[in-house]
Design a protein around this nucleic acid. Structure first.
Length: 616
RNA sequence: GGCUUUGUAGCUCAACUGGAUAGAGCACUUGACUACGAAUCAAGAGGUUACAGGUUCGAAUCCUGUCAAGGUCACCA
């Protein structure tokens, strides 16, 4: 048992003894003592003022005396206002740390027999990945690592939005204007090439739309607008989709292509799989650079039919209802939501249809207990509706569905907008951060004069750590600001800072092994300085933190923890000497402590998808 | 407009889920390198936690209202 639990038990017994009052363990508030006070743990005594009918300070004094007498771990206590600060006997800290030294995999929870599926990335196949995807991918990857460590069997997946009008736009533009260009012939990465034609389509469409606005037909449409106060530019902006669907030549062609696709037209299907193939190759390269992979991919083109089948079933079970025009809806008013369309009047599927089908297919494949969707917060409502719908359909995993909703990544100038060309490309960003790491490394090497063939990998790890840590340290639900023009920090609360603490600690341990220092002498160490205790204390928090991060789906907890741990170690580093300590048992103890610290850091950072360099 | 999320130092973020004097980093000022590595450490300055009420021993955190920013309310995905 850990100290907190022992103290809680002690407080429970003491309150019963002193005030004849039962308290349950969960309601006892025990916090870590703030560093401006002496002590390790603090019991908040305010809750006991009612049953005890005494002043907080008095209760604290009485409780403290009983705890000191009854609990051998409590060495000293002091009372400040309503706070009872307890100091744990050094003896127990030492005993505790020796236990930690022997632990194999700190933080690895035993398997809980449950399966969880984590869906992340899920890009459209008409353009390359950007900064927003990076946040998504890092969150999803990190979450799956954390859940794995918390004892779940994890399946990493994504839904590839490989069909629909968007990809048809790219295909059409390529067919009309591409002149047979391929990634090989042009040297352009596949996802960028598809993106190029998507943009080209939008440009051609925009030109067509603007020309049309001058026609008499358009003028009649504008004159007949409902909101008479609306200005012409505003109206045309709102009208764009209607124009695309009802008037546009290009729109007509794109939609015709979509219909051919749905009819399995061989030529269209051929072009579709060719262009998607280019895109997948491009994505694969980006995923590799980010160090992530997936266990199973789902393609929208495969799942939308399953969705339609489930809608038909649900219609029979009266989960859904059909309107006169043939469209199918679900009434969620009893759950304080609206009516939502699940199937168009022409029988074709919508977004919701596909998600319903995908969920069912996944359950058929894996029988998961939980599923986490890593998707931006603009889709909060969509997932509320989806989860409620799955519940009503009676899916056994419905209550295990979770939307890991995260805020957008903003630029200092505001939102990223593809139309304004402010989208930060993922590949480019990765190249840039590694380049910053390289420049720094070169500067350092001019001083130290060391360089070798492993350097390239070390530089890559440092650059990626800087980028990943910057993004993952922010609480997912908050919007975050990223300035691509400023180099990603490598000093202070950053990935490289944590890597540096790791490299130091690891270096000390390796040197100790090389010098054949007798590490078993650590058992004789008995003094224990505050900086050492602080480190043990923090390391002891790690397993609980992993579980908390898993429960809250929040990798930023781990990120902030790693920083604090690294900071404590750096502090210790400056305050005391490790290999040059006076007593052999002190050296041995500190070496072991450094090793434990470095292993914990490495593990924590691995959960964030950040690799540690051997040297820096 | 309805619903919803977020407002914390100049900037980027914390705050153990209601606990003590709201903490870090960057930037700024000042000290500490003969490598157990200074990508570090120590110190200084920087705050009416958007605003106004309320709840209680105690509020950045919970409730109400106001203001600001974002999202959403498609037979788009």
């Amino acid at each position: 048992m850990n100290f907190t639990e022992k103290i809680a038990e002690g407080v429970k017994a003491a309150v019963a003894k002193l005030y004849d009052h039962p308290v349950d363990l969960e309601s006892i508030m025990i916090t870590n003592t703030r560093k401006e006070f002496t002590g390790d743990y603090t019991v908040v005594v305010f809750p006991f003022t009612k049953p005890a009918k005494k002043k907080p300070a008095e209760i604290g004094q009485e409780l403290g005396e009983v705890l000191k007498a009854d609990l051998d771990i409590v060495a000293e206590f002091n009372v400040v206002k309503g706070f009872l600060n307890l100091s744990i006997d050094n003896k127990y800290w030492l005993e505790f740390s020796r236990k930690l030294f022997k632990t194999e995999q700190l933080g690895q929870a035993p398997a809980n027999g449950k399966k969880v599926m984590v869906e992340f990335s899920s890009p459209n196949t008409n353009k390359p990945l950007h900064l927003g995807h990076i946040r998504n991918i890092l969150l999803g990857w990190s979450c799956s690592q954390i859940l794995d460590r918390a004892g779940y069997e994890v399946i990493k997946t994504q839904i590839v939005n490989d069909r629909g009008i968007a990809i048809c736009k790219s295909m059409l533009a390529w067919e009309k204007f591409g002149a047979g260009e391929t990634p090989d012939s042009s040297g352009i990465k596949g996802d960028f090439l598809a993106g190029k034609y998507y943009v080209l389509f939008e440009q051609k469409f925009k030109a067509e739309y603007q020309a049309w606005q001058q026609t008499d037909a358009a003028k009649a449409v504008f004159a007949a607008r409902k909101k008479s106060e609306q200005s012409e530019p505003e109206f045309w902006k709102d009208y764009k989709n209607t124009y695309f669907n009802d008037y546009s030549e290009l729109g007509k062609e794109a939609k015709a292509m979509l219909l051919k696709w749905e009819d399995n037209d061989p030529a269209v299907r051929q072009l579709w799989s060719t262009m998607n193939g280019w895109v997948y190759d491009g994505f694969a390269a980006t995923y590799k650079a980010l160090g992530v992979d997936f266990d199973k991919l789902y393609y929208e083109s495969d799942t939308y039919l399953e969705g339609k089948r489930i809608i038909a079933d649900g219609l029979a079970k009266e989960v859904f209802y059909k309107k006169e025009d043939g469209s199918v809806w679900i009434d969620l008013e009893s759950a304080k939501m609206d009516h939502k369309l699940v199937l168009r009047s022409d029988g074709t599927s919508v977004y919701m249809t596909q998600d319903i089908g995908t969920a069912q297919l996944r359950s058929d494949d894996f029988g998961m207990d939980k599923m986490v969707y890593v998707v931006g917060d603009e889709q909060d409502y969509h997932f509320k509706v989806l989860f409620e719908t799955m519940k009503r359909l009676g899916a056994p995993y419905a209550k295990g569905l979770h939307h890991l909703s995260y805020g957008m990544v903003d630029l200092p100038t505001g939102k990223m907008k593809s139309r304004e060309g402010t989208v930060v490309d993922a590949d480019e960003l990765i190249r840039d951060v590694v380049e910053v790491a390289r420049v720094n490394m070169v500067e350092r090497n001019e001083v130290t004069g060391k360089a070798d063939e492993d350097m390239e990998e070390i530089i890559r790890r440092i650059g990626m750590a800087a980028l990943k840590y910057f993004i993952i340290k922010v609480n997912p639900k908050k919007r975050m600001v990223f300035n691509p023009n400023e180099a990603v920090d490598i000093q202070g609360q950053t990935g490289p800072y944590i890597q540096y603490a790791f490299v130091r600690a690891k270096g000390v341990y390796e040197k100790a092994v090389q010098d054949q220092i007798n590490l078993s002498l650590a058992d004789n160490y008995s003094t224990l300085k505050p900086v050492e205790k602080e480190l043990i204390f923090q390391i002891s928090q790690y397993p609980g933190l992993v579980l908390q991060a898993a429960e809250t789906y929040d990798p930023s907890l781990i990120a902030n923890y790693c920083y604090n741990l690294a900071r404590s170690f750096n502090k210790l580093w400056h305050e005391v000497s490790i290999l040059n300590a006076e007593q052999p048992e002190t050296i041995a103890y500190r070496v072991k402590l450094s090793k434990l610290m470095s292993e914990t850091l490495k593990d924590g950072m691995q959960l964030l998808g950040i690799e540690m360099p051997e040297r820096m």
